[in-house]
């Protein structure tokens, strides 16, 4: 099979941040693939369009399936399929593209998604705090960055004015 690798040059990912800790990862993320090539064995994350085109085959292959969406794909489009995915990857093509923050919140708050939400792409330490607050709970850090160092991102700011995925109510209720 031919897999084009983007962002994640150390594919398959060795370590990701999950729940503020480093873990060895079991998922293989296929960033882009041709239809006529077979998927590798094991748990895979496929592009959302691939899921749409090969839904039946994927459901019967006997592994866990995750999908990857970016800001162009409406969360509404996959809302009906959420039960099939233990993991949804949210792709940040550039860390300044903030659409997936809204995606994460919608998936958590509106569609009640309880699986793993993983940030992939241009994922850097200084955005992890915001991502985490929106309900993203695992992070495939850009591979040129120090993943141990990135763990510090979660404890830098302890005050949260707003309710979000990590905070049930607004801060003023504690005052």
């Amino acid at each position: 099979m031919r897999v084009k690798r983007r962002y994640n040059q150390r594919w398959p990912a060795m370590r990701v941040i999950k729940d503020n800790r480093l873990i060895d990862d079991r998922w293989q993320r296929i960033a882009r693939m041709d239809d006529d090539h077979a998927l590798p064995a094991g748990d895979v994350i496929v592009p959302f369009h691939y899921w749409q085109a090969h839904r039946e085959a994927l459901l019967t292959r006997g592994s866990n399936i995750g999908v990857c969406i970016n800001g162009d794909i409406e969360t509404e489009e996959l809302a009906g399929d959420l039960d099939h995915f233990p993991l949804i990857a949210l792709e940040f093509p550039a860390f300044t593209d903030g659409r997936c923050y809204s995606h994460a919140r919608l998936l958590r708050d509106r569609y009640g998604y309880r699986g793993e939400l993983r940030a992939v792409g241009d994922v850097l330490r200084d955005q992890l705090f915001f991502m985490r607050r929106c309900g993203i709970d695992s992070f495939e850090l850009r591979n040129d960055k120090d993943i141990e160092d990135a763990l510090r991102a979660f404890s830098e700011i302890t005050v949260r004015y707003q309710a979000a995925a990590d905070t049930a109510g607004p801060l003023y209720r504690n005052r």
């Binding site: 860390f95 915001f130 707003q162």
Partner: peptide, 12 residues
Amino acid sequence: QWSTLHPEFSYL
């Protein structure tokens, strides 16, 4: 206060 470090709206 609502908008300060708003997690969803820091990369508009």
